[in-house]
């Protein structure tokens, strides 16, 4: 994947962007943002939040571009990683401040994320994917919806490749059982 014509074009733009050409970065982002947006909205469940976070990825990518190091992954995988971190920050920001009155009821960020996803009333096969444990769902989405390799998925989620493989295996198994249970 990293040698595809699309990625070659992105690499050329990235090289220009790391040299300070902001328009090259703009072009690069324009080529990638739909995929990044798709990934984000699957996590946050609302168009307006996904739009805000996508623009943050734009800004953070621009800030980080000069320190970009090529570690053999595709350019898109680098943006997905920024997007993943931005989504994590987004849900962390939604965690209410410590309050004695409700200290026992501060929801887990994963629950907040799940609640956000539920709001969208996602149906069909994808509806079943989001019902899987969050880590498994995350891996299935990156691997098969967003078409990222195992090593890229591991880099994006900051997990080991072997963990990604295990989560993918469990995720597929659980999903299959869920679907079979419905028939």
């Amino acid at each position: 994947m990293s040698g595809s014509p699309e990625n070659e074009q992105l690499r050329e733009l990235l090289a220009l962007a790391t040299d300070g050409d902001r328009r090259a970065y703009g072009k690069l982002f324009n080529l990638c943002y739909k995929d990044i947006y798709d990934y984000i909205i699957r996590r946050v469940g609302s168009h307006s939040d996904a739009e805000d976070i996508t623009m943050q990825v734009f800004a953070q990518g621009l800030k980080a571009i000069t320190s970009y190091e090529d570690r053999g992954h595709s350019v898109k995988a680098w943006l997905y990683r920024i997007a993943h971190n931005a989504v994590v920050d987004h849900f962390r920001g939604m965690k209410p401040s410590v309050d004695l009155d409700g200290a026992a009821e501060i929801p887990d960020p994963v629950d907040i994320e799940r609640a956000a996803i539920d709001k969208e009333e996602i149906r069909g096969l994808y509806g079943e994917i989001v019902k899987l444990p969050a880590a498994q769902a995350e891996v299935l989405v990156l691997r098969f919806v967003e078409d990222r390799s195992v090593s890229e998925t591991a880099m994006i989620l900051d997990k080991k490749e072997v963990t990604v493989r295990a989560l993918q295996f469990k995720g597929i198994k659980n999903l299959r059982q869920r679907l079979e249970g419905q028939q």
């Binding site: 902001r22 328009r23 703009g26 072009k27 324009n30 623009m55 734009f58 621009l62």
Partner: peptide
Amino acid sequence: VAVGSRLPSYGLALAG
């Protein structure tokens, strides 16, 4: 995004 990617500063403004 179309405007922001042509004018990165505008994109930054949109990103807050």
